[in-house]
Simulated assay, not measured.
Amino acid sequence: MENKYTIQNYDSMRQKQSIKKKGALNPMYGGRHSAKTKQKISNSQKIRWNNIRQAIEQVSEETNDKARQDLIDQALYSDTISFKDEQQARNFFKIMSQSDKELLAKYLEPIVNSFVREYLQHVQ
């Protein structure tokens, strides 16, 4: 069965519709939206963009939580933690919660102390 909605058919259909609504044939030709209509449009767009903004923030928050947890797991359960660049490291510490920071500090303290002791032994 042939698809009657091919791109070529769609383009010709759009062109025909465009011709039907040009100039004086357009219902809004010469007209203007009233102040009340403009306000309705404005309000609906504000609501629409607020919903979009909330959805983006929710996804971003979920992504930050997952990224934070992955990096903490990497730090605690593997020998290394790596960042793409300095900015990624800064971002990681910005999104860490206080309990995450305490957990990481508790984990890293003996390791850092060990390095310091070894360094001091070599220096002396």
Rank of each mutant, 00 (worst) to 15 (best):
Ile41Phe: 03
Gln54Trp: 09
Asn113Trp: 01
Gln74Leu: 06
Asp70Gly: 05
Asp73Gln: 08
Val59Gln: 06
Arg53Ala: 15
Gln39Val: 08
Gly31Ala: 11
Asn3Glu: 08
Gln74Ser: 06
Lys36Met: 05
Ser18Asn: 05
Leu104Phe: 05
Asp73Thr: 11
Leu120Gln: 09
Gln39Thr: 08
Gln124Tyr: 07
Ile19Met: 09
Arg117Lys: 05
Ser12Pro: 06
Glu102Asp: 09
Arg14Leu: 13
Met28Val: 00
Gly30Ser: 03
Pro110Leu: 04
Gln69Ile: 05
Ile19Gly: 08
Arg117Thr: 07
Asn91Arg: 10
Gln87Lys: 00
Glu109Thr: 12
Ile56Gln: 03
Phe115Ile: 02
Lys84Gly: 09
Glu61Thr: 12
His122Gly: 15
Val123Ser: 10
Tyr29Asn: 09
Glu118Gln: 13
Ile95Phe: 04
Ala55Leu: 11
Met28Lys: 05
Phe92Lys: 04
Glu57His: 12
Asn3Tyr: 02
Gln8His: 06
Lys94Gln: 15
Phe83Pro: 05
Gln39Ser: 12
Pro27Ser: 03
Ser12Thr: 15
Ser78Phe: 04
Ser12Trp: 13
Asp11Ala: 04
Lys21His: 11
Arg117Trp: 04
Met28Asp: 07
Tyr5Ile: 09
Phe115Leu: 02
Gln39Arg: 13
Gln54Asn: 15
Ala105Pro: 00
Lys16Trp: 03
Gln87Trp: 00
Gly31Arg: 15
